[in-house]
């Protein structure tokens, strides 16, 4: 059976559409471009803030603030950059647990 040029184009269009839809589904697990930009800006601003706070200020209070900031940045990184919010719960818990144990122990060492 010969396909007419019009049918061929339609078939090709349907394949392209199906591929695009699959691509679209896969994208759903990654943050949207706007969220990615906002995340990068927030993490960078918090980094500059930590460096700015370090210029002066009470040493112990500074240590606690900066370590807490690092913990918060780490949480965002694990959730959105590593994408573990969509990972199996054991993996998510292990990595966030590591960060929580290390950060809280470090915070305690400054009290």
């Amino acid at each position: 059976m010969d396909l007419r040029p019009g049918d061929k184009r339609k078939a090709l269009f349907r394949i392209k559409e199906a591929l695009a839809a699959r691509g679209h589904d896969a994208v759903m697990t990654y943050p949207a471009p706007g969220t990615q930009r906002a995340l990068w800006l927030l993490l960078s601003l918090l980094t500059v803030l930590a460096a700015w706070l370090a210029e002066d200020g009470h040493p112990r209070r500074l240590a606690l603030i900066v370590l807490a900031l690092a913990w918060f940045k780490g949480v965002l990184l694990v959730e959105y950059y590593m994408g573990l919010r969509h990972a199996p719960r054991w993996l998510h818990a292990l990595v966030q647990g590591w960060l929580a144990v290390v950060s809280s122990a470090l915070l305690l060492s400054f009290f």
């Binding site: 500074l62 990184l77 590593m82 950060s103």
Partner: peptide, 22 residues
């Protein structure tokens, strides 16, 4: 990507601990 982000995650803690927290 997973490996790269791990290296970044470790640095965030290292930076705060070794360079800033005193």
């Amino acid at each position: 990507a997973a490996y790269w982000h791990m290296v970044d995650l470790v640095w965030l803690v290292l930076f705060a601990l070794v360079y800033v927290a005193r």
